[in-house]
Design a protein around this nucleic acid. Structure first.
Length: 433
RNA sequence: GGAGGGAUGACAGAGCGGACGAAUGUACUGGUCUUGAAAACCAGCGUGGUGAAAGCCACCGAGGGUUCGAAUCCCUCUCCCUCCGCCA
């Protein structure tokens, strides 16, 4: 959430900053206007309220001194002002709600370093890695046996059964089996082990309250993207970021306790409402996938380092897996609404010949902390400040699974998996059929 | 699912219709004393909104209501505890 004080004190600066991501200046003007109206109504209500309270004290005094006539007169007057106050309160509340609602829809400021531009064409590729790069090897080319898409390989080897997944839950709900299912388990176990050195492992609920999904910025704007269980008014989480960001919701943290880091693997549910018919084959885009998330509450001073640490951890896993990948610095227009800066990691999947987004590593500044009301008490004293939040996937397994299956495919049709998964897989070879 | 008990500041805990934003204790901060520390004593010690400021307003789990006036009474909900039922 954007600080209302900023809009009040310098609306044109706010408008200019948000124009970088395509927000109309009028949106900010409207909020500024609404704020003036709201404060006016609030002042009227509060002065009426103050009068009621002061009269009520007089009533008490009059009764104590036995002056019933005076008390009755005061009560009558107070009742009239009370009615007026009730009306004023309704008006002020309505204006306040409208203001808050509009504020919740405003996206975050992009950071100064975020590249300009409004479409994904303006994202900047900042690095690229492939196995052997450090030894001077050229960017890889791929053999014919690696040019088979994972949905074909998966079916051929009995690792992935999209058809039965669809029978159970409809299309885009994958069903893994045998070594395919085990590979998913191995990836999660490997990653959680790797991160639990400095990130506390969490296993959060998969269903959360509206408030929890609002704190991260997924609601109210993106309700179409999430599964909602109407009967219980609960939402299926689209990412572990959602529960993790609310871990300390409404709390005041001690500066000395920061950074507070969490890692969690959860299923992630996405309706993909806006993406009907695009990239729907195999695991390219699915309604449910497992993902390990890294998350931290930090002070503003710690944010940069924490953001970098998550990026480094995500990248290091990709290198462990020997996957060909690139890092994109997302431009203002492609940034998620809550983020100030985001790096996307994309792996190259040779079978379907596509770069697949497998991680999004973001710094949110105080935007989410403001929505979730997570503050810290500075060690040096002074007033409370909002924490910053950072998070990133490490990693989203469905697409990693696809890239590993395609990249590891041998000429005999078997699959070679990365050594690091050996302890979790039993064997790093999935035999041909 | 049923019956009962509870939720108050960092923590513990009083208050149960009239000056209560809230006693008291602990913790914490500053000071006095001390060579230093402890102890003792003194003082301070929630958050937010609004306002130039004085101030005013809100917040005692959440939301509604009664009342001139609500932490206190009523209703609904959430969570915690105890018992019963059901259950992996």
């Amino acid at each position: 959430m954007i600080d209302l004080h900023l809009i009040r004190s310098d609306p044109s600066a706010v408008a200019a900053a948000l124009a970088r991501r395509g927000v109309e200046a009028k949106e900010i003007e409207d909020i500024a206007d609404l704020d003036v109206v709201h404060r006016g109504l609030l002042q009227r209500q509060e002065s009426l309220r103050a009068e009621v309270k002061s009269l009520s004290k007089d009533v008490g005094a009059a009764k104590k001194s036995g002056d019933e006539a005076k008390a009755t007169a005061l009560m009558e007057r107070s009742r009239l002002i009370g009615d007026e106050e009730r009306e004023a309160a309704h008006e002020a509340d309505a204006a306040g709600e409208a203001l808050h609602g509009a504020l919740l829809l405003l996206p975050n400021f992009p950071s100064e370093e975020t590249p300009e531009g409004l479409s994904d064409a303006n994202n900047i590729e900042i690095s690229r890695w492939w196995p052997g790069k450090e030894d001077g090897e050229a960017e890889p080319t791929y053999s014919e046996s690696q040019r088979v898409p994972h949905w074909d390989v998966g079916e051929e080897l009995g690792l992935l059964d999209m058809e039965r997944g669809a029978r159970l839950a409809g299309s885009m709900f994958p069903l893994y089996r045998g070594k395919g299912a085990r590979l998913l388990r191995a990836l999660g176990a490997y990653a959680l082990n790797a991160h639990s050195d400095s990130y506390e492992e969490i296993r959060p609920p998969s269903l959360v309250l509206t408030e929890t999904l609002t704190s991260t910025g997924h609601l109210p704007k993106f309700s179409e993207e999430a599964y909602h269980l109407e009967r219980d008014d609960l939402w299926a989480i689209p990412t572990a970021e959602v529960p993790l960001t609310s871990m300390h919701r409404g709390e005041i943290l001690e500066e000395a306790s920061l950074p507070i880091r969490f890692t969690a693997q959860t299923a992630c549910f996405r309706r993909e409402a806006g993406a009907a018919g695009r990239d729907t084959r195999g695991l390219l885009r699915v309604h449910e996938f497992d993902k390990v998330e890294l998350f931290a509450y930090v002070t503003p001073d710690q944010a940069h380092e924490a953001h970098r640490d998550i990026l480094e951890r995500a990248e290091s896993m990709l290198r462990d897996f020997g996957l060909h990948y690139r890092v994109l610095d997302l431009c203002c227009g492609d940034l998620g609404g809550s983020a100030a800066r985001t790096f996307d990691l994309e792996v190259y999947a040779p079978g379907c010949d596509q770069w697949l987004e497998v991680s999004s590593v973001s710094w949110f500044a105080d935007y989410q902390a403001r929505r979730a009301n997570v503050r810290f008490r500075p060690q040096e004293g002074g007033s409370l400040e909002f924490v910053h939040t950072v998070n990133g996937s490490a990693l989203a397994w469905a697409r990693i699974w696809a890239a590993l299956i395609e990249t590891g495919r041998q000429s005999d049709g078997s699959i070679e998996l990365p050594e690091v998964l050996g302890p979790f897989m039993g064997s790093t070879t999935i035999p041909a059929r």
